[in-house]
């Protein structure tokens, strides 16, 4: 199953944070991400979905090496990363060139004091000092064209651009080092609906042209349906369901996935809406419920769910972490 095209291979990837509870409270641990395992091939898209606070962005930060994993192992483009081995500067530089990130908010992700040209050239300037300034400029201008911006935008500043254009610039910057993996952390959720589709089309086009692997993080299931090859559903730092997009969308097994899917509007007035309304709030990650993390909100929960957490198991089409998976 794993071949040379596998760019990310994560095994039991975890990231915990120590949180201090004031002067006398001692410390407690937030398990923002616990034992996530997945792999990602060149040219394909893995979508990570879930509501806010489920660990999606933590996953993005671990994969882009902004933060080291607490436990587990991550193999990025052939390089092994884990919490206990610290990388040398050279390895870091190599890895940086293979995984880059596009952030959610296009208004915060571009330095307001740098021109577009400088923003695009900075990654090359830092990582490949041997490239001459003229060559650098040429690369930046080519990249501008590739993301659908005009050459005269080179000298402008971020405040002169609309949200969609800024997101194009952010994509261009991420691609300047010719990475093979692109982490897209909710790349379109801050944009207008009409502009969302343009950015998504651009991403699809770039993926086809450059054979990129996308780790696509989103809470918008209609966007995910459009983009994803594989889907991973997360709840409170854990993967609850994972499989091919078709399998997950057509026959969701986990109650949480089904609730999520039922909340996405469908443009078909004749279709009967069976909206599953979840009771209660997302529990505090500081104090997760015993057993399956979803049990306080689950309508199928039984005693067993409140005692031990289910492991991911193969349910035919894909894998799911539930004792009482749904069958249709």
């Amino acid at each position: 199953m794993l071949n040379n095209n596998t760019l990310i291979e994560a095994t039991d990837l975890s990231r915990h944070y120590e949180v201090s509870n004031g002067l006398f409270g001692g410390k407690s641990t937030v398990k923002a991400l616990s034992s996530a395992s997945f792999h990602l091939q060149a040219g394909s898209t893995l979508a990570v979905v879930g509501e806010s606070g489920c660990g999606k962005s933590t996953l993005a930060r671990v994969v882009t090496m902004i933060e080291p994993p607490t436990a587990g192992q991550l193999i990025l483009d052939g390089h092994r990363i884990s919490g206990d081995i610290s990388l040398t500067d050279e390895q870091r530089a190599e890895l940086r060139a293979s995984v880059q990130i596009v952030f959610q908010d296009p208004f915060g992700s571009l330095n307001p004091r740098q021109s577009i040209g400088r923003i695009l050239e900075e990654p090359v300037l830092i990582n490949r000092p041997s490239v001459s300034p003229t060559q650098r400029e040429q690369q930046a201008r080519e990249m501008l064209a590739m993301v659908g911006l005009r050459p005269e935008h080179y000298d402008r500043y971020p405040h002169m651009f609309s949200g969609g254009q800024r997101q194009r610039i952010a994509v261009a910057r991420a691609l300047m080092l010719e990475p093979r993996i692109l982490v897209l952390d909710e790349p379109v959720s801050a944009l207008d609906l009409s502009i969302q589709s343009q950015i998504l089309n651009l991403l699809v086009e770039l993926q086809e042209r450059l054979n990129l692997a996308y780790l696509f993080i989103s809470h918008d299931l209609s966007v995910v349906r459009h983009m994803a090859d594989e889907v991973m559903v997360m709840y409170l730092g854990r993967v609850v369901e994972s499989g091919s997009a078709a399998a997950v969308f057509d026959s969701p097994k986990h109650p949480y996935t089904q609730a999520l899917l039922s909340a996405t509007p469908v443009a078909d007035p004749t279709r009967e809406q069976t909206r599953i309304r979840l009771q209660g709030e997302l529990p505090s990650p500081l104090n997760p419920p015993a057993g399956c993390a979803f049990n306080p909100r689950c309508w199928r929960a039984q005693d067993r769910c409140r005692v031990t957490a289910p492991e991911l198991s193969d349910e035919g089409t894909h894998i799911v972490a539930c004792y009482f998976p749904l069958h249709d």
Partner: peptide
């Protein structure tokens, strides 16, 4: 985010 992205590019 722009500071984080500068960090990501090293």
């Amino acid at each position: 985010d722009y500071v984080t992205s500068a960090r990501v590019v090293g």
